[in-house]
């Protein structure tokens, strides 16, 4: 299927929001793929980090929404410190997560987690996990 590109799509609210929330110039990315090459979570991702950057540039919000990738990002900042263009991809990932979370949608439902798991996990895991994956 072809994707129709237009100025409308390239300058959509989605693209603007991601740029604003992340504070990043999305057009710095020249698709070298170094982020994907080194991403420790990359093995589990259906769309690679550099592809996320490209999809954002193209305004293809639905493709990102249908992917698990942004939820697998662990904010480890490996991509951030190695990016030749100084793009803080961890912030772009956060912005993409917030688009969902701010609609009051949780990615992880704390109430559905097994109580023994919750009891076993240290605070550091619970607080960071809920900060990243719940609204």
């Amino acid at each position: 299927m072809r994707v129709e590109l237009s100025s409308k799509r390239l300058r959509s609210d989605f693209v603007k929001k991601i740029a604003e929330l992340s504070g990043q110039n999305l057009y710095l990315c020249y698709q070298c793929g170094k982020c994907s090459a080194g991403c420790p979570m990359g093995f589990a991702m259906d769309i690679l980090p550099n592809q996320i950057m490209r999809l954002v540039q193209l305004g293809l919000e639905e493709d990102i929404a249908n992917s698990k990738t942004v939820w697998l990002c662990a904010s480890c900042l490996t991509c951030t410190v190695r990016c030749p263009r100084g793009v803080d991809l961890s912030r772009v990932m956060e912005a993409l997560r917030l688009l969902t979370l701010r609609k009051n949608k949780n990615y992880v439902e704390p109430s559905k987690m097994p109580p023994e798991t919750v009891a076993d996990l240290p605070q550091i895991a619970l607080v960071s996990g809920f900060r990243k994956l719940t609204s």
């Binding site: 420790p40 979570m41 093995f43 589990a44 939820w71 697998l72 662990a74 904010s75 480890c76 490996t78 990615y107 992880v108 987690m113 996990l121 895991a125 619970l126 960071s128 996990g129 809920f130 900060r131 990243k132 994956l133």
Partner: peptide, 20 residues
Amino acid sequence: ATECCGAFQIVNNRDIITER
């Protein structure tokens, strides 16, 4: 030494932590 262990993914996806 500086590779991520998977961090907070533990709350949702133990397989990721196991792999890492």
